[in-house]
Each structure stands twice: as structure tokens, then as C-alpha cells.
Design a protein around this nucleic acid. Structure first.
Ligand code: MN
Ligand code: MN
Ligand code: MN
Ligand code: MN
Lengths: 162, 162
DNA sequence: ATACTATCTTAGCCATGGCTAACTTTTTTC
DNA sequence: GAAAAAAGTTAGCCATGGCTAAGATAGTAT
């Protein structure tokens, strides 16, 4: 249940690495953690609208059951989250009916889709296997800034084996 | 308050990218989301032990106040989280006293420290600016698999300007 | 020693994101 | 078109991770 603590490469720690481990200035440090908390606030909603958009596109319909099956959670959990999505004006639906994205939801889905694709393609271009790349990209995407995305895009374009 | 939905590069979407956006098989998709939920379970605890370790190392002591200041949260929040850290056997402390890491806490801190450093150095080696790299690394680190870490390490070693 | 200040804890509040169980509605089957 | 199955909702539970307000303890000055 607990994350393994010995699950990572044990390669040599070089001199030059030592320096970068000192504590950053407090204000910087605070910004780092705040950015993470911030990302976590919208993470799930982003994944939902992205998935709903994909289901609409590839299956013509987005049903709660499909979402529950894909996300690996119960239907009740999906129902509750959909209520939140509606209250945030991202999703539209009648009770017991299929789900749709609002304009705002479309926009968020489109952003998430693009961002996710950039990170996934980058990881593959780097040389990470497809399965691992998909898993890592799903979590990483929400923590990648615009600047880093641009660097990733350029890398994939220039050196990608995609 | 809501995440901006137009905050990302709008570069052209190439043909080859289109294919990779199709829905992955359901089981794979479930694994992706499960991995993210899993990472989020330990994420905060990892950052706490990492920070406590750094404070012990660089300031000789790890006080709740310092943690609260660095994390940008209230002391009450730190107190509550420390209770959890103790109940998981990661941290040791007497009431109103400084914090220490258990063996288990040390191990987790060491893992987190290494992983965090690898991701940070990788981003810098990629060409991301220091400030951005620090922010992105803080969130990304928890979602990077062993395989990807190894690829990042190799990249930094071979092409890094570090 | 007393008083002040800084630190830490506790209680109680809230939102999020899981779950199961019970119920309702819709869809399919016969 | 009735019965059965599938899909969706609601209620109520729990843990996490924030917060404020109030109180307790420790450390510093005077
Ligand atoms: Mn995701
Ligand atoms: Mn970290
Ligand atoms: Mn972190
Ligand atoms: Mn995360």
C-alpha cells in the first residue's frame, strides 16, 4: 500500500548535483508548492472533460457508465463529479441522459487534449516505452507549464523518433 | 480562479499526432488513472519528509513553523499532517518539540530527494529556465516512473549543460 | 520570577473524491 | 406491453487536506 521507497535508480550522485539540493529561498519554495496545489484543484475536472470529449468524438456518446469503466471508479463517484462539472458550467446534461460539453468545457477539453498529447509524444520521443509513457503522461501533464510544453514540443519536432 | 483554458502553445497539429489521440484500450486507460490516484496518495507525505530531511540537513532542526512557512500553509495544517506522518511511522517527535525522521522516513526522504533532483536537472538540461524547472519538477516528480527516471538521468548525463 | 512572544496543538468547519447500498429511470428482451 | 437488466441517482459513510479560532506550552526578556 505504501509507496516503495527503494524503487528508483541508484546511479552515482555527481558533485555538480550536490549543490542543486540546497533549500531554495522560502518565497520560491512556497510558489512551488502553491503551484502543485493549484494544479491538483483542476486536475480531475480536466481529465473528465478530456475523456468526455474523446468519448463523444470516438463513440458518438458519453455515458456515465463508460466514464466509470474507463476511470476505474464507481458510477456513484462519476455522478457526483458530473454534478460538480455542471455546477462549474463545463458539462450539460439531462438526468439519466448522455453528457455534453459546454463551450467552456470544450475549451478545457481541447487544452487538456493538446497538452496531454504533447507530453505523451515527448516521452516517447525521449525513448520511454509506450505503456510507461501513457501512464506517466497522465499524471505529469497537469504539472507542465507553458514554457516546458514549448520546450517539449520543440524537442519532439527536432529529435523525435515519432 | 479557474485554470485558464487558453494558456498553452497553439502550434500546428501534425498528421502523425492525430493517431495517438484515439482512446486507449479500457484496461490501459484504467491503469493510467489508477496510477495517478496512487501517486496522489503519497505525494504530500513525500514532500513533507523530503522537506523535513532538508531542514534537518541545512538548518539542523525541523520545526513546524519552518515547514508551514516553506509550504505556504497554516501551522494547524502542518500539525495535522505531522500526526499522519507519525501514525505512518515516518516521523518521530515529542509534543512541542522538533521533528525527526524514522528509518522509514529517512528512506522515503532519500528516495524523494533523489527523484526530485533527477527531474529538476533533467528539465534544466532540456533548456527550461530555472524558476520554471523548479515549479514543474515539484509536481512532476511524483508522476515519473522508474523507467522514465532512468531515461531522464541518461539524457542529463549525455546532453546536459548542467 | 513574571510577563511577553513565539510556537504548537486541538476543535470544528468546509470541499474534494473515493466507497456501498438503496432507489429510480431507461432500455432491452421476450 | 410486462418483466428483467442496465444505467443513473441519491444518501450516507470515510479519509485527505485546507482553514480559523482558541488554548496550551516553551522560550525570551526584563
Ligand atoms: Mn491527466
Ligand atoms: Mn519534492
Ligand atoms: Mn513535490
Ligand atoms: Mn499530481
Amino acid at each position: 500500500m505504501n509507496a516503495s521507497t527503494s524503487d528508483f535508480p541508484t546511479g552515482s550522485t555527481r558533485m555538480s548535483e550536490q549543490m542543486s539540493d540546497a533549500l531554495p529561498p522560502s518565497e520560491q519554495h512556497v510558489r512551488q508548492y502553491a503551484a502543485v496545489r493549484n494544479a491538483h484543484e483542476t486536475e480531475l475536472l480536466e481529465d473528465y472533460v478530456e475523456l468526455i470529449g474523446d468519448l463523444l468524438k470516438y463513440q458518438g456518446e458519453a455515458r456515465s457508465t463508460d466514464i466509470a469503466a474507463r476511470m476505474g471508479v464507481s458510477q456513484a463517484t462519476v455522478s457526483k463529479t458530473v454534478t460538480r462539472l455542471k455546477s462549474q458550467g463545463l458539462v450539460d446534461s439531462q438526468p439519466y441522459r448522455s453528457l455534453f460539453l459546454t463551450e467552456k468545457g470544450e475549451a478545457m477539453a481541447e487544452m487538456a487534449r493538446r497538452r496531454h498529447a504533447i507530453v505523451l509524444q515527448f516521452l516517447r520521443a525521449l525513448g520511454v516505452s509506450d505503456g510507461t509513457a501513457r501512464i506517466d503522461a497522465e499524471g505529469m501533464e497537469h504539472h507542465v507549464s507553458r514554457e516546458t510544453l514549448e520546450v517539449m514540443e520543440r524537442f519532439t519536432r527536432e529529435r523525435g523518433r515519432d
